[in-house]
């Protein structure tokens, strides 16, 4: 195959994978619009795509061309949203004790609960 047909094929595969991902997202948005639910559409889209992968209707290599760059640079996409906390500095300084308590107690309790739960079944030792 010439370089041209190869790159044409790669572009077609990229377009197909974009279409699959946007298709799942669009389908999820339509479903949420009709059911009037408050479930976040992107999450439903994720579940739809997972279902399609698990049933084998869509293969891993169908989505990889656009999924892997999206996943590699995912943190970039929530930087603008993350910076938004500066709009709530007043609220944060007013309730900083609550926020500090959450930052410490939420992960601490989960860590201890989960690790001990598994240790009950698997033992605490290093090797299982």
């Amino acid at each position: 195959m010439s370089a041209f047909t190869l790159s044409l094929k790669a572009s077609a595969q990229l377009l197909l994978s974009i279409a699959i991902i946007l298709g799942c997202l669009a389908a999820a948005k339509v479903i949420m619009q009709f059911t009037q639910g408050s479930f976040p559409a992107p999450l439903l889209g994720m579940l739809l795509l997972l279902g399609l992968l698990l049933t084998g209707l869509i293969k891993e290599h169908h989505v990889t061309p656009s999924a892997s760059p999206l996943l590699n640079y995912m943190p970039l996409f929530f930087i603008p949203a993350g910076v938004g906390f500066i709009e709530h500095l007043n609220l944060i300084s007013l309730h900083w004790q609550f926020i500090v308590a959450c930052l410490i107690l939420v992960p601490l309790t989960s860590l201890l609960l989960i690790s001990h739960l598994i240790a009950v079944f698997k033992g605490r030792a290093q090797h299982d």
């Binding site: 997202l25 994720m46 739809l48 891993e60 996943l71 996409f77 603008p80 949203a81 910076v83 938004g84």
Partner: peptide, 28 residues
């Protein structure tokens, strides 16, 4: 912040398809 978020909204738009793409590592 509004100005910053308006001018970076293209990045935020990509978050939704990226969440859908999370299905791939989940599946693996």
């Amino acid at each position: 912040y509004e100005t910053f978020s308006y001018h970076t909204q293209f990045l935020s738009w990509l978050l939704e398809p990226a969440i859908v793409a999370l299905a791939l590592p989940l599946y693996k």
